[in-house]
């Protein structure tokens, strides 16, 4: 999911499940799976129970990892002279700063035809990959938008030519 304000672009992964929904889903699966396993255990076939528990632990872990994606953010702030990229979760956030007039937006296609492209902002040998959690269409849209906002090393960003247009949300 992608949202752009005048000078701030925020990239966040799409999460169609709320935490409450995830907990409800997990408890629902646990209730059914453990009911089945407990009936077998009650009949004396207890080895079903640890396997059910193990599996539910993996499911819980998978849901947790996936839900934590929702905390991930990439915030690209474009100032008059520099571009700041902040990415990570609330606990772990990394910050990289580039000079606006040297920064380049680079969208490179992958070696393998079935892989996704890679979008990065970079300058002076440093680069920072962004938009990893986006679909290809969104990545292309983001690249297009960032090129408008940042421009290449040898060009004036479009935003300086037409300031008002950048106010529109990209998506």
């Amino acid at each position: 999911m992608l949202a752009v304000s005048r000078h701030v672009v925020e990239v966040r992964p799409n999460c169609s499940l709320s935490w409450r929904g995830a907990v409800a889903l997990y408890l629902w699966v646990c209730a059914i799976s453990l009911s089945i396993a407990l009936v077998f255990a009650w009949q004396g076939y207890w080895p079903v129970l640890p396997f059910a528990g193990l599996e539910l632990a993996v499911l819980g872990g998978a849901l947790w990892v996936s839900m934590r994606r929702g905390d991930y953010r990439e915030v690209i702030t474009i100032h008059d002279n520099h571009v700041i990229v902040e990415k990570g979760t609330k606990r772990q956030r990394q910050r990289i700063e580039f000079s606006l007039h040297w920064a380049r937006v680079n969208l490179r296609s992958a070696h393998a035809s079935s892989h996704s492209s890679r979008l990065a902002i970079g300058s002076h040998g440093r680069s920072c990959e962004i938009g990893h959690c986006l679909t290809e269409s969104e990545k292309l849209g983001l690249a297009r938008r960032l090129r408008e906002l940042i421009g290449g090393a040898d060009q004036t960003p479009a935003r300086w030519l037409n300031e008002d247009r950048t106010d529109n949300a990209h998506r």
Binding site: R69, Y72, G88, A110, H111, S114, H115, G122, H132
Partner: peptide
């Protein structure tokens, strides 16, 4: 989802090729 913040050399993060592409595949299509 990537948590990679910075790469000094872009190629460092490219997808592996050859047998490694398949052995370490994480792409859903592969």
């Amino acid at each position: 989802m990537s948590h990679t913040a910075e790469a000094h050399h872009d190629d460092h993060h490219d997808a592996p090729t050859g047998i490694k592409r398949w052995l370490f595949a994480t792409n859903h299509k592969d």
